[in-house]
Simulated assay, not measured.
Amino acid sequence: MSLMLDFKCVINPYVVYATERDWGRGSGSGVMSDVLSARFRKCLEVKLELASLLKARRYSSGWEI
């Protein structure tokens, strides 16, 4: 909350952490588990929504990079 107020940052609250268990059966399979896939999809949906809302805004900030 402090970053958003003090530095005008927008933070995506959805973060995906994954371990070996999240990548299917057997090591090196490279296939996401259903749980990981759902978490990753939610994170990307929120990121895309935030990006589209920020792009459509009418103002700009001197803090932007």
Rank of each mutant, 00 (worst) to 15 (best):
R58S: 10
G28M: 05
R57M: 07
K8V: 06
D22P: 03
V35P: 00
G24V: 07
R39N: 14
V10P: 01
G26Q: 03
I11L: 10
Y14G: 04
I11K: 01
S33Y: 10
S2V: 14
G62L: 15
A18P: 05
V46G: 01
L54C: 06
V31H: 10
K42T: 12
S61Q: 08
V31A: 12
V15E: 14
G62S: 15
D6T: 10
W23P: 13
F40S: 13
G30W: 14
L36R: 04
S2D: 12
L44H: 00
L3A: 09
R21Y: 04
A18V: 07
I11R: 04
L44T: 04
L44K: 04
T19N: 06
E45G: 00
K8I: 05
M32H: 05
R41F: 02
I65T: 07
R39A: 15
G62C: 11
V15N: 12
G24N: 03
K42R: 15
L48P: 01
T19F: 02
T19W: 00
K42I: 10
F7W: 11
P13E: 02
A51C: 06
V35S: 09
G62R: 13
K55N: 02
V10G: 03
A51H: 02
R57I: 04
A38I: 09
K42H: 12
G28F: 01
S37T: 03
S60R: 14
V15F: 11
G26W: 09
S2K: 08
L5P: 02
L5H: 08
V10R: 04
Y14L: 15
E64N: 12
F40A: 14
V10S: 07
W23R: 08
P13H: 02
E45D: 03
S33L: 13
V15G: 10
L53A: 08
T19G: 12
L50P: 07
M1W: 01
G26Y: 12
A18W: 09
K55T: 01
S52I: 02
R21A: 10
G30N: 15
V35C: 09
W63N: 14
L53G: 09
M1R: 03
S60L: 15
V35F: 11
S60F: 15
F7E: 13
M32W: 09
W63M: 15
I65N: 05
L36H: 04
R58D: 12
L44A: 07
L36V: 01
S60P: 06
R25N: 06
A56H: 03
L48K: 11
L53I: 05
M32C: 15
R21N: 06
K8L: 12
V46D: 04
L36M: 08
Y59K: 01
E20D: 13
S33A: 11
A38P: 02
S37K: 09
L53M: 12
R58N: 09
L44Q: 04
W23N: 11
G62D: 14
R41P: 00
S61E: 13
C43Q: 07
R57E: 01
V10E: 06
E64H: 10
R57V: 03
A18E: 14
M4W: 00
L53P: 00
M1A: 11
N12F: 00
K8F: 06
P13G: 03
L48T: 11
G26I: 10
M1I: 07
V16Q: 07
E49C: 01
R39G: 07
T19E: 09
